[in-house]
Computed example of a mutant assay.
Amino acid sequence: MYAVIVNPLSGSGQALSLAKRVMQRIEQSGHKGRLLHCYALENLATQLKHAADAGVTNLVIVGGDGTAHQIINRLPHLDFNIGFVSAGSGNDLVRSLELGTCETEQIDIALFTPTQDMPLGRCNGSYFLTSVGLGFEGFVAHRVAGRRGGRRAAYHSAILGSLFGYHPHRAKFVNCKWKSDEQFLMCSVANSAFSGGGYKVAPNASLQNNELSLIRLAPMGTWSRLPMMFKVAKGAHVSAPEVQQVNLDTLEIRSETRIPAHIDGEPFFANRFRFSSANETIRVRCLGLR
Rank of each mutant, 00 (worst) to 15 (best):
Y2D: 04
G11V: 14
G11W: 04
G11E: 08
G13H: 14
G13S: 14
Q14K: 15
A15D: 07
S17Q: 05
L18H: 03
K20F: 12
K20G: 05
V22Y: 02
M23F: 00
R34Y: 00
L35I: 01
Y39C: 06
L44N: 10
A45R: 15
Q47H: 06
A54Q: 11
N58V: 03
I61A: 14
I61R: 06
V62M: 05
D65F: 15
P76R: 14
H77D: 15
L78A: 12
F80M: 13
N81F: 09
I82K: 14
V85H: 10
S86D: 07
G88V: 01
G90V: 01
G90R: 10
N91Y: 08
L93C: 08
V94M: 15
S96W: 08
L97V: 04
E103N: 12
E103H: 14
T104G: 12
E105I: 09
Q106H: 08
A110H: 04
L111K: 06
F112M: 11
T113L: 13
L134A: 01
L134C: 08
E137A: 12
G138Q: 08
V140C: 15
H142C: 03
H142F: 02
A145P: 07
G146W: 06
G149D: 08
Y155R: 02
G161T: 10
F164Q: 07
G165L: 08
H169S: 07
K172W: 13
V174C: 11
K177Q: 12
K179D: 06
S180Y: 04
S180M: 11
D181L: 15
E182H: 05
L185G: 07
A190V: 02
A190T: 05
A190M: 03
N191W: 01
A193E: 00
L207Y: 03
N209D: 15
L214N: 01
A218R: 14
P219G: 09
G221R: 12
W223P: 01
R225Y: 04
R225F: 10
M228H: 12
F230I: 05
A233D: 03
A236G: 01
V238F: 07
V238E: 09
V238D: 02
V238A: 14
Q244S: 15
Q244A: 15
N247C: 12
T250L: 09
L251C: 09
R254T: 04
E256Q: 06
P260H: 06
A261N: 08
A261Q: 01
A261W: 05
I263P: 10
G265Y: 02
F269Q: 07
F269M: 07
A270W: 00
N271P: 00
R274H: 09
S277T: 01
S277G: 09
S277N: 08
R283F: 00
R285D: 09
G288S: 15
L289K: 14
